[in-house]
Nucleic acid binder design. Structure first.
Lengths: 119, 119
DNA sequence: TGCTATACTATGTTATACGTAGTATGCGGA
DNA sequence: TCCGCATACTACGTATAACATAGTATAGCA
């Protein structure tokens, strides 16, 4: 399922923050993880993800360390800051609110059918 | 619940198309309906909604007629075109896909708790 | 007459998703 | 040993939508 550009807005950043919540990850790894974990729906390109990371770091949501991987290659590992955790919580709440609204309008399937529809 | 600008992207248009699915409505009425039906979450301002309508009409998703309301005031009534119906169906599908992805990532609450969480 | 709600138009700003292009390295096979 | 490929990241330009702000005009009511 190909998602339109504009619908992706807002979904990407929250997803990245969520992945970084557990443990640090590097860019290339995030791209892979997002794509796989969402079955291609949140498949961000490099030109989307990397600037997003720079942006988030500038805002203090994440921080990074450049470090050699076991393979010997240099990688930049990102992890959530305290601010990032707060932001994740806030944005998650907003996503739930939007979902509720979309549900109320009948765009997302109702509670009784949610399980089958989103299964 | 105040929703950030970027998270709103993509949500507005689908919601508007959905409201117009049933019967024609005019701009001011749509603003009101969106705000009320979503409990303020999809509360678009005039400067967001009107350009959105012009845009959608230019794309052929909706069409309009200017007509005097019972009150005597001129209003522009919008209704879905065939293309608009198709677009609504497609975007609805995409919204479901994104929701499923957000659910898989643990951002939206899981199936068993969806009913309570979104209730 | 003046105020308020209704109804719409116009313009400029900001943010981000993505296309495209380019750089550099580790590794496996021919 | 050398080539090609996957890995890993950087850089720049474009398009688009959400919104702030401002302005126009009318109906109804006190």
């Amino acid at each position: 399922m190909r998602i339109e550009r504009e619908l992706m807005r807002g979904a990407g950043p929250v997803a990245v923050l969520k992945l970084l919540e557990r443990h640090e990850m590097y860019g290339y790894e995030l791209i892979d993880a997002l794509s796989k974990r969402s079955e291609g729906v949140l498949a961000l390109g490099q030109s989307t993800l990397y600037p997003m990371l720079y942006n988030m770091e500038a805002k203090g949501l994440i921080e990074s360390t450049e470090r050699a991987a076991p393979s010997g290659r240099e990688r930049r590992y990102y992890r959530l800051t305290r601010t990032g955790h707060a932001q994740l919580a806030q944005q998650t709440e907003q996503w739930v609110a939007i979902s509720r609204a979309m549900l109320a309008l009948g765009i997302l399937p109702g509670p009784t059918t949610t399980q089958e529809a989103l299964a």
